[in-house]
């Protein structure tokens, strides 16, 4: 039994009288500590997979198992706890609380966790040791994303889910962020799933799922994932 399993997961949105099948029978499984890349074009359904996996959305049908728990059967309060204790999220637009400093943003998440990491240390790890007391508006995009990652990591989650983490960043910064994520996976043994439309990033994942029209069209296994440093696009 895998750490994460998706069995025939479907998601249907009702927009007016039209049913949109965002996910149309998704099946995959992920092992603990893997670095997963989910790639696909815009609207292919990759974000939906991540949202459902992250407990931010629910599936219409199918079975989702994370570390032995049936996520698809959780009610709202259980999903909240699931997000709270098991999931770390990194968004394309960081979603930091503007009114809080970098440290406070991390603390905000840590406040409610059971077994958090020390916020200051995590920030140091992501390379922001000297900018802890800056407000988001005083930080660059890459730095903000680092804060976001730090916030996700500090919760000490089971899964780190990243939705286009480099989408709003320039090439170099994006690379640094990806590097940070890859290192996190490697050093902490954290299961990391990133979503990207950039196919160039595929080689860096332990496994790569390609998504199209709500279906996994391929699931590759990289026996030797490349270091992000070596990938150019």
């Amino acid at each position: 039994m895998s750490y994460i399993e998706f069995h025939d997961v479907t998601k249907v949105y009702h927009v007016g009288e039209v049913d949109i099948r965002a996910l149309d029978g998704v099946d995959f499984d992920i092992e603990k500590g893997q670095f997963i890349v989910i790639a696909g074009a815009s609207g292919a359904g990759k974000s939906t997979i991540l949202n459902i996996l992250g407990g931010m959305d629910t599936c219409t049908d199918g079975e989702i198992i994370v570390d032995g728990s049936r996520v698809d059967q959780m009610n709202e309060a259980e999903l909240t706890d699931y997000r709270r204790y098991d999931i770390g999220f990194v968004f394309q637009f960081y979603n930091l609380v503007q009114n809080l400093t970098a440290l406070e943003n991390v603390e905000l998440a840590v406040e409610i966790c059971k077994d958090p990491l020390d916020p200051a240390r995590v920030l140091e790890q992501v390379g922001l040791g000297d900018r802890m007391n800056n407000f988001p508006s005083q930080l660059s995009g890459g730095e903000q994303q680092r804060v976001a990652i730090a916030r996700a990591l500090a919760k000490n989650p089971k899964l780190l889910l990243c939705d286009e983490p480099t989408g709003a960043l320039d090439y170099v910064t994006g690379k640094q962020i990806l590097k940070l994520l890859q290192e996190t996976c490697r050093t902490h043994g954290m299961t990391v799933i990133i979503i990207t439309h950039n196919l160039a990033l595929c080689p860096m994942g332990d496994r790569v799922f390609r998504v199209k029209s709500g279906k996994i069209i391929s699931a590759e296994v990289n026996e030797h994932p490349q270091d992000i440093e070596t990938i150019e696009w």
Partner: peptide, 16 residues
């Protein structure tokens, strides 16, 4: 709204 959504994602409960 965005801030509230973020809190929710972070796992803040209703009451929180």
């Amino acid at each position: 709204q965005r801030e509230i959504a973020t809190l929710k994602v972070l796992g803040f409960r209703k009451r929180e």
